[in-house]
Nucleic acid binder design. Structure first.
Length: 222
DNA sequence: CACCAGGCAAGTA
DNA sequence: TACTTGCATGGT
């Protein structure tokens, strides 16, 4: 629908004007993006930064090293990011996949057609839709809109979507109504995260929110 | 102190 | 299929 497109673009413009470019993903290499995407699952980014710092300092931030290091050692290194036993396994699951399927080479993986690759990622234990889409958008520049808890919160409060929408439905809402461009999706998702942290978290700041109109803080279930 | 953070998988009925 | 629970650190 044309109305949704206008509305979504309008929100994007307001966010960008108020908050500026976010320069995502905050990582230097595609592999660091992938590691960060797994480590940040249900965890604040500052904790992930500490874990990644540990990995760097210990020379572990490469597929080869993560493949070879013992599980307990890896877990200890990423301890600050929480769920460290699970996430250590998830990192190993991914690098094993990378090795098996693409000779350990991310450049080969990047050449793969997006849709089948997304399915393959989702088959891995520890990679769900948000992590898969974050990897594909931010490491490989594929035009997939990343949905997270913030996206759901903001757009339900805006009254634009139902509370019960699934991940795929919410993703479709954006992808059906916006131009399928990776740079746009990159910036839009990053702005949503920034906006949610700044204004949508605390009731007191809700009125300052650059989207603002129609937002009903506290009246929704969150 | 309780609650939250850029999810996901496994268990239960 | 539809809910519930475990995973865990550290900040507010």
């Amino acid at each position: 629908m044309l109305l949704h497109r206008k509305k979504l673009l309008s929100i994007y413009q307001r966010l960008f004007k108020a908050l500026g470019p976010q320069h995502w993903w905050p990582a230097k290499t595609p592999f660091e993006v992938i590691v960060g995407a797994i480590l940040t699952q249900n965890t604040s980014w500052v904790q992930v930064e500490k874990a990644i710092k540990n990995l760097k300092e210990q020379g572990l931030l490469s597929p080869e090293r993560i493949l070879k290091i013992s599980l307990p050692e890896l877990a200890q290194a990423i301890r600050p990011s929480g769920y460290f036993n699970q996430k250590a396994k998830r990192l190993k699951t991914f690098v094993a996949f990378l090795q098996r399927r693409f000779k350990g080479n991310l450049r080969i993986m990047a050449e793969e057609p997006m849709s089948p690759l997304r399915k393959e990622l989702l088959e891995l234990s520890g990679i769900g839709p948000e992590t898969a889409d974050s990897i594909l958008l931010y490491a490989f520049h594929q035009p997939l809109f990343v949905v997270d808890a913030y996206t759901h919160r903001i757009f339900t409060r805006q009254g634009m979507i139902e509370e019960e929408v699934s991940y795929e439905e919410l993703q479709g809402f954006f992808m059906d109504h916006l131009p399928l461009e990776a740079p746009l999706f990159n910036e839009y998702h990053a702005l949503i995260v920034k906006e949610a942290k700044e204004f949508c978290r605390k009731k007191a700041l809700c009125s300052e929110c650059p989207i603002s109109e129609g937002c009903l803080f506290g009246e929704g279930k969150n």
